[in-house]
């Protein structure tokens, strides 16, 4: 019984996994993205037009999507 997976582990010793946003900055990034989403959403709410839907809605949705993921990680629910 050899240990091929242990060799795989040893071979990858130079590339430990690093997340895009570290644990220390998850709250900042998540908070900024959520504020952005809130502001863009607010502007859209004041001026609901078809053209504003992609111009404000898409960036606001993206900011909310990523912001929500980072915020839930920042409060300790690591998804």
């Amino acid at each position: 019984m050899s240990s091929p997976l242990l060799d795989v582990w040893d071979a990858a010793s130079n590339s430990p996994y690093q997340p895009t946003v570290g644990k220390g900055s998850q709250f900042t990034v998540g908070f900024l993205l959520l504020v952005t989403a809130f502001l863009l959403g607010g502007v859209f709410g004041l001026n609901r037009s078809f053209i504003n839907l992609p111009i404000l809605g898409i960036p606001a949705s993206l900011a909310f999507g990523f912001g929500a993921v980072y915020m839930i990680c920042a409060v300790g629910v690591y998804v």
């Binding site: 989403a37 709410g45 839907l53 949705s61 993206l62 909310f64 990523f66």
Partner: peptide, 17 residues
Amino acid sequence: KPIVITLGMFAVFAATW
């Protein structure tokens, strides 16, 4: 995960409009 939330949020915007 973020894309699912994004789509959900965009659906809210579209419904609002």
